[in-house]
C-alpha cells in the first residue's frame, strides 16, 4: 500500500530531513513511526500526502507514484487518505459537525445527507454531544479528536496520524488507538507518528524508528528490546 524506495527529502535550505528511507507497509497493517523531535516523522507523512515531493528515490502509495503525481491528481490522491494533523488543521468558522463533514462534502454529499456518517465518526471519538460547537470552544484534546473523526469519516484506505495523542491523557489515547485498531481490522493501512514511547511499547505494533532522517530500526511486532 505504501512503499518507500530509498527516498530522500532535502528542503530548500539543503538540510536533508530524510535520507535513503526504504520500507513497505501493506494493506491492513498498522505501524508507528517514532523518533526524536526533528527526526523527520512529519516530513515522511507529508511525502505520502504529496504535500512535499521526494528529492530522490521512489514513493508509491496505493499504486500512485507520488513523486511524479500531477497537480490534478493530488486532490484525488488525498481523498484516499485520512489524515490526522499534528496541528489539527480545522476550519474555525465551521461547527464540529461541518468540519467532520468536509471530506464527504468534497465527494459531493450534501451536509444533511452525510449526517449519519458524521455522527458515527463523532461517536467513535466521544464527541457526539459537541457537534454544534465551534473548534475554538474546544480543548486541544477535543480538537484533536475532531481531526481524528474527520480523518476516518470517509472510510479511507490509508490513515496517517501525526502525533494523534499528543494532547490526550492516557485513557483517551487508548480510546483513540482502539478506534485505529478497528480500522486496521477492516483492512485499512495505518501509519502513526508518535514520540510517545510508552504508548508504542504498550501496543506492540511494528515500529519504524527514525534518527536524524535515517531509518535506524524497523522493529517488527512481538520483538521487544
Amino acid at each position: 500500500m505504501i512503499k518507500f524506495d530509498s527516498v530522500s527529502k532535502r528542503y530548500l535550505d539543503r538540510h536533508e530531513a530524510l535520507s535513503a528511507i526504504s520500507f513497505e507497509i501493506s494493506k491492513g497493517e498498522m505501524a508507528f513511526i517514532s523518533g526524536h523531535s526533528g527526526a523527520g516523522k512529519s516530513t515522511l507523512l507529508k511525502l505520502i500526502l504529496a504535500i512535499e515531493k521526494p528529492s530522490t528515490g521512489q514513493l508509491v502509495v496505493n499504486g500512485v507514484n507520488v513523486g511524479r503525481i500531477s497537480r490534478r491528481q493530488i486532490a484525488a490522491h488525498r481523498r484516499q487518505i485520512g489524515t490526522v494533523f499534528q496541528d489539527h488543521q480545522l476550519l474555525y468558522d465551521r461547527s464540529v459537525f461541518d468540519n467532520v463533514a468536509l471530506p464527504l462534502e468534497i465527494c459531493g454529499y450534501h451536509r444533511q445527507e452525510a449526517g449519519r456518517r458524521v455522527r458515527a465518526a463523532l461517536d467513535k471519538v466521544g464527541l457526539l454531544s459537541k457537534e454544534r460547537s465551534y473548534p475554538e470552544a474546544l480543548s486541544g484534546g477535543e480538537q484533536q479528536r475532531v481531526g481524528i473523526a474527520r480523518a476516518v469519516v470517509n472510510r479511507p484506505c490509508i490513515i496517517l496520524a501525526d502525533e494523534p495523542t499528543g494532547n490526550l491523557d492516557p485513557d483517551l489515547s487508548a480510546e483513540v488507538m482502539r478506534v485505529f485498531e478497528q480500522f486496521k481490522s477492516v483492512g485499512v493501512c495505518l501509519l502513526v507518528a508518535s514520540h510517545d514511547a510508552s504508548l508504542i511499547q504498550r501496543l506492540n505494533y511494528r515500529t519504524l524508528i527514525l534518527h536524524e532522517g535515517r531509518l535506524c530500526e524497523d522493529r517488527m511486532p512481538g520483538t521487544s528490546r
Binding site: 454529499y109 461517536d123 472510510r155
Partner: peptide, 27 residues
C-alpha cells in the same frame, strides 16, 4: 465509544444508502 461490531452495522447500513466506491466519485 462503540465497539467494532456496532461500527460494522453502521457501515453496512451506510453501504446500502451509497455505493462503496462513492469515495472518489461524486454520488
Amino acid at each position: 465509544m462503540r465497539g467494532p461490531h456496532a461500527r460494522d452495522q453502521q457501515m453496512s447500513r451506510d453501504q446500502r444508502a451509497t455505493p462503496r466506491n462513492s469515495r472518489s466519485v461524486s454520488p
